[in-house]
């Protein structure tokens, strides 16, 4: 870790020509975020005759990951939403040159004195703020749905998919992942994919920014019940905003009791908050399709993580654990969602 901290300090000095005596301390890897290696650290320097210090987050590409996307793609989302009514950490530097830290990375502000763990939502001092956190969570998702990707600089008009084709594009994308990575036949996810193809959803009411992994566990909240930052934008894309709503409602995020969506709000209340904030409607037909799609996408990710571990491309035990445990629960959730459990 000392070597990485020293190398990072040299990089930071290169990016801050006015800074003197740049050094990094307290560099520590953060567990989770299996798609990229994530570190927190404190950067110290002198500038204008004064001592300065700032907490930073370093996100470095791993040798293999759950989700393979370009780091510039994720960085652009932070740039687009900072600052706005969608809270995100301030993005600072994007570095593609591997000579600094062996692999590409980006750096952003560390939002301090926060928690992100799913389990913490049920424990003091956060549990008493569940309702407030829940309302805010789906309000922010509504704000993402409302945002204009062209104004944000995330898309040109020609990039916007046909509203009637959003579902097909995403389904094809994740079916390809299952095709490529399944370690054996997967009858449940195949049945769910066929169900989705047989009854397409209505066209998107509007095409917007889709976060792609909007769920409890992927935002920072504090002890006062505030959501301070939405994280993990690596799967953002343009599409039907209902995709994010469906993903956020996956029963996996509230397993095993499933009383509250994302361990925060009753499902219907979450949908109502999102509708009010986004100005869009989540009809029963459309949201059912996107909830089942979310289960398929989730299964594709768990299948892919199991493959990464099985092939030896990653030694991260979390990838093995999700393949063993979470994928099985997600299969059950798929059967329930298809009305085939009992």
């Amino acid at each position: 870790m000392h070597e990485l901290a020293d190398r990072f300090a040299r990089y930071a000095a290169h990016r801050m020509p006015e800074a003197r005596e740049v050094r990094a301390s307290a560099l520590a890897r953060i567990h989770g975020g299996a798609s990229r290696e994530t570190f927190r650290l404190r950067l110290h320097w002198r500038e204008g005759g004064r001592e300065r210090e700032r907490g930073l987050i370093l996100r470095r590409d791993p040798p293999a990951s759950l989700i393979e996307t370009e780091r510039s793609h994720e960085f652009r989302a932070y740039q687009a939403f900072h600052p706005s009514d969608v809270p995100v950490p301030e993005p600072l530097w994007l570095e593609e040159d591997p000579r600094w830290l062996e692999r590409p990375f980006f750096v952003m502000e560390q939002v301090e004195r926060c928690e992100s763990a799913l389990r913490a939502l049920g424990e003091p001092p956060y549990a008493e703020h569940r309702e407030r956190l829940g309302r805010r969570k789906w309000e922010i998702l509504g704000a993402i749905a409302r945002s204009d990707p062209q104004q944000l600089g995330l898309a040109l008009e020609r990039d916007l998919p046909d509203p009637a084709a959003c579902w097909e594009r995403e389904l094809a994308r994740w079916e390809e992942v299952v095709d490529a990575d399944a370690l054996g036949p997967e009858p449940v996810v195949r049945a769910a994919i066929r169900w989705l193809r047989r009854q397409p959803p209505p066209p998107a009411e509007r095409v917007g920014v889709v976060h792609g992994d909007y769920r409890s566990g992927n935002f920072l909240f504090d002890a006062e019940g505030r959501i301070r930052a939405i994280l993990d934008w690596e799967m953002w894309h343009l599409g039907d905003p209902l995709e994010d709503l469906g993903w956020s409602l996956n029963p996996l995020w509230s397993w095993p009791d499933r009383k509250l969506a994302g361990r925060l709000l009753p499902r219907e209340e979450a949908i109502a908050v999102w509708e009010a904030a986004s100005g869009l409607r989540a009809t029963a037909e459309a949201i059912r399709w996107w909830e089942i799609f979310a289960i398929v996408k989730s299964l594709a990710i768990w299948i892919s993580s199991a493959r990464e571990y099985a092939d030896g491309r990653s030694g991260d035990p979390t990838l093995a654990l999700v393949g063993w445990v979470i994928k099985g629960v997600q299969d059950r959730i798929a059967l329930e969602a298809l009305g085939r459990w009992r």
Binding site: L118, R119, V188, L252, W255, I326, G328, L335, R340, R342
Partner: peptide, 19 residues
Amino acid sequence: VWAELRAEVERRAIGFWPL
């Protein structure tokens, strides 16, 4: 077939839950 898929899921169920 659906009954067999339910049975498959039950056969593979694991008591340990990490989240």
